[in-house]
């Protein structure tokens, strides 16, 4: 039962990532693409966690835990640039 749920959610997240990749390539403005990159990143984090659970290896879950902490930072840089301020002030 758990295997079926895991595989189903894996497929759902891979579909999400694929759709977001389309938006990242086509999306007309920069914020569109940045949000698409955020969705891709968090989807990949969940996919890495699901792969770690399926394969039963605790070494693979470490990376998905810690990666989720700083994926948002690229959006922070771009937002700071588009505010028109000097970085660091």
């Amino acid at each position: 039962m758990l295997d079926i749920i895991l595989l189903f959610s894996l497929g759902m997240f891979i579909t999400t990532i694929t759709l977001s990749m389309y938006r990242m390539v086509v999306g007309p403005t920069i914020p569109d693409r940045m949000l698409a990159l955020d969705v891709i990143s968090y989807g990949l984090t969940v996919v890495m966690g699901i792969i770690a659970v399926i394969s039963g290896s605790p070494y693979l879950i470490v990376i998905s835990f810690s990666l989720a902490l700083w994926f948002f930072i690229g959006a922070l840089y771009v937002a700071r640039y588009m505010e028109g301020e000097q970085i660091g002030d």
């Binding site: 700083w70 930072i73 660091g88 002030d89």
Partner: peptide
């Protein structure tokens, strides 16, 4: 990762 923490502080605060 430690550098990312400080860079986040520099960008978001000052």
């Amino acid at each position: 990762i430690m550098a990312i923490a400080y860079i986040a502080i520099i960008v978001a605060l000052s």
